[in-house]
């Protein structure tokens, strides 16, 4: 536990082992372990809604959600990585790829750490309100806050890369577009993370194979009365 917290502190402060160019393999493993552990923690907290609102099967929901948040973060990362690699090569910064990769994983780990740090707030919210819709919104706000922290951390990690070669800035924008495109759909696919009180606990909803963007477009068009 102490090792994990020390590693988290190192990631947030950009300790030398997280940025040193030599021996990137062990550093990536440590970063990935942090990502998995803290995402697992926040997932578990997300799934505790049922337990704190006195419903059955809450332990199962906790376990499912604990598995799904690391899956969400790592899945979006892995699916987007081949495109990022080819774009890095094409733009001419392939020699910095190992460093970029480490910065991206560190930012992902930072996102998980920020989420874990916000988890007491989520628990407090669950203890204060039993409304499922509000719990959904609150978790959305937590993800948004953690994403902003991760974005800040990513810029810090990327600062030397951008100073060396400004083309990295464009790549960061491309990465953000790819990551968001995939992550939104993956989150939709992996729902429920909280567990509706009106439904049985399931790993995936029966209607999981659907499209987040189509849903959002329909909601927007309906709201506009079109």
């Amino acid at each position: 536990m102490a090792t994990l917290l020390t590693a988290a502190d190192d990631i947030l402060r950009r300790a030398p082992w997280t940025t040193r160019s030599a021996r990137s393999g062990p550093a990536i493993v440590r970063l990935a372990a942090c990502l998995a552990a803290f995402a697992l923690w926040y997932g578990g907290v997300m799934g505790a809604f049922r337990g704190l609102t006195g419903q059955d099967q809450w332990l199962r929901q906790v376990a499912y959600s604990a598995v799904k948040v690391p899956l969400l973060l790592s899945g979006a990362f892995v699916i987007g990585l081949p495109s990022f690699f080819v774009l890095s090569t094409l733009v001419g910064v392939r020699r910095d790829f190992a460093e970029s990769l480490r910065a991206l994983i560190a930012a992902q780990a930072g996102l998980a750490i920020a989420l874990a740090a916000l988890s007491p707030l989520t628990l407090l919210w669950y203890a204060s309100s039993t409304q499922y819709d509000l719990a959904l919104v609150f978790n959305g706000v937590m993800f948004a806050a953690a994403s902003m922290a991760a974005q800040y951390l990513l810029r810090q990690y990327y600062r030397p890369l951008i100073a060396r070669d400004p083309r990295h800035r464009k790549l960061l924008i491309a990465w953000a577009a790819i990551y968001i495109l995939v992550a939104v759909q993956l989150a939709w696919l992996l729902r429920p993370f909280i567990g509706s009180p009106h439904a049985d606990v399931q790993f995936l909803r029966p209607e999981a194979w659907d499209n987040a963007y189509v849903k959002v477009a329909k909601i927007v068009w309906q709201a506009l009365g079109l």
Binding site: S83, L181, V214
Partner: peptide, 22 residues
């Protein structure tokens, strides 16, 4: 090459969405 590198994203959406127009 760029197209093939976008393949995993397309595969992911292919398997996870029902919307043909999308």
């Amino acid at each position: 090459t760029v197209l093939a590198s976008l393949g995993p994203i397309v595969l992911f959406f292919s398997l996870s969405t029902n919307s043909h127009p999308f």
